[in-house]
Design a protein around this nucleic acid. Structure first.
Lengths: 201, 201
DNA sequence: CGTAGTCTTGAGTATCCTCAACGAGGGTGG
DNA sequence: CCACCCTCGTTGAGGATACTCAAGACTACG
C-alpha cells in the first residue's frame, strides 16, 4: 500500500470537531488512525441517528455519489484521520491491481460492519441491544477479544446508535451490572464478566 | 461488462428455495435478475432477522471471508439469480481495471443500501418504520419513484426486517390506510397517496 | 371448491419513553 | 489548590407504545 500512502494527508481533530459534513463534496476517502469518531445523520425533525462508530483502522467516507449524506465527528481529543483524494485514488486503483484489490477488501469489511450493526439494531429489547453493542465494541476494540475496554462515547451517543432513550441505556447498563454480566468503573470503563448473559435474554 | 458475463451461471429458484445457506463456502458472487429474495440470519434463540430484501439488479453475497453468515431465500416463484465464481472474478478484476472499478461501484451501492436500512431501523415508532420501509421499497422498485407497487413479502418478513411483531406491522398498515396515507389492494398491492404522511409521523 | 397459510383485529400486559430531579466528574478560573 | 460550574449520568414516577396470546376472516394455492 505504499502507492496509496503517497497520496495521504494526516490531520488531527479535537473532540467534537467535524471531520466532514453532510453536504461536503465527497472528494476524499478517510481512515481513522487513532481516536474515535461517530458517523451521524440529522433527521428533518431534529433527532440524530448515529449510523456507525469509527475505531482506529476503520475506513470511511466511501461513496459512489458525489455528496456525503452523513457527518463524521471526532469523539475524543486527538482523533487522527488519514485522508486520500478520491479521484487520484481511483486512478491509482485502475492502474495498480494491488491497490484496487485492497480497496475492494476495505469495501467488503465496511459492508460487514454495516451488517453486524443491522443485527444489533434488529434486537427487540433494550437489554439485548446494549448487550450486543458491548460485545461488538469488545470485539472491534483492537481486533482482539478483550474483556476490558473503554467506552469513549456518551450515553446519548449510544442511545442514538441503538435507537433508545439515553435513560434506557443507562438503566440497561446498571441492570447488566447488577446481574453480574459486566463491571463498570466510572461509567466509561467496562469489563465483561459473563459473555453469555449479554446475548441470551 | 462482457468480460464478467462470460463467467456467469443463471439459475431459477422456486418460491422459498434457498439460494445459499449460512454455512456455504463463499465461492460465488450473485446478482438478482428477476424476482425477490430475502437475506436472513437465524439467531441462536430461534428468532429470525431479515437483513435485506433483494430486488432485480441487486448484487449480493459479497464477502471478504470464506463463509457466508446469512442465508438468502427466494420469496417469489421464478426468482432468477446470476452467479459469478468469486476466484475467477477476482482474477479478472485484477487484470481488467474496468471490471475492478465496476465491482467497487457495486460494493459502494451495497453499502448505501445498508446505511439506508440502518436509518429505517433507527426510527423509533412502528408507524415511522413501516412508513420508511414503504418509501424505500417504492424508491428501489425499478429505480423509478413509483407510487403503486407490489409488496411481495409477507407481513412476517416485514416484521423480521423492521424488528417488529407481525401484528404491529399489520396494525401500522391499516392505520396508514385509514389516515389516507396509502391505499391497499388485497394486502400486497400498495399505492402511496400522501408521501409526507409516511415520514412525519 | 376446500384447505392451509396469511392477514387482521381484539384484549391484557410488559417494556420503553417522557418529564423531572438529583448526583457525580471533569474542566476552568480564581 | 480549591471552588465553582456545566455537562453527563443515574434514578424515579407516570403514561404511551408495542408485544403476547388468541380468535376470526380472508387469500391463494392445490
Amino acid at each position: 500500500m505504499e502507492a496509496l500512502d503517497s497520496l495521504v494527508t494526516v490531520t488531527p481533530h479535537r473532540r467534537g470537531a467535524t471531520i466532514y459534513g453532510p453536504d461536503d463534496p465527497a472528494e476524499h476517502w478517510y481512515r481513522l488512525l487513532s481516536g474515535v469518531a461517530r458517523k451521524c445523520a440529522l433527521l428533518p425533525d431534529g433527532r440524530r441517528h448515529i449510523v456507525d462508530f469509527l475505531l482506529p483502522g476503520d475506513f470511511f467516507g466511501f461513496i459512489a455519489r458525489h455528496e456525503h449524506r452523513f457527518a463524521v465527528e471526532a469523539i475524543v481529543e486527538d482523533t487522527v484521520v488519514a485522508r486520500y483524494p478520491r479521484r487520484r485514488a481511483e486512478v491509482l486503483a485502475d492502474s495498480d491491481p494491488e491497490v484496487g484489490r485492497r480497496i475492494r477488501e476495505v469495501a467488503f469489511e465496511t459492508m460487514s460492519r454495516a451488517q453486524a450493526r443491522t443485527l444489533i439494531l434488529g434486537r427487540t429489547t433494550a437489554a439485548e441491544k446494549v448487550g450486543s453493542f458491548l460485545l461488538e465494541m469488545a470485539e472491534r476494540w483492537a481486533g482482539a477479544t478483550v474483556d476490558a475496554f473503554v467506552l469513549p462515547m456518551s450515553r446519548y451517543d449510544i442511545a442514538d446508535y441503538l435507537a433508545l432513550a439515553a435513560e434506557t441505556v443507562s438503566r440497561a447498563l446498571t441492570d447488566l451490572k447488577q446481574r453480574g454480566a459486566i463491571a463498570l468503573v466510572r461509567a466509561h470503563r467496562v469489563r465483561i464478566v459473563d459473555r453469555d448473559a449479554l446475548t441470551l435474554d
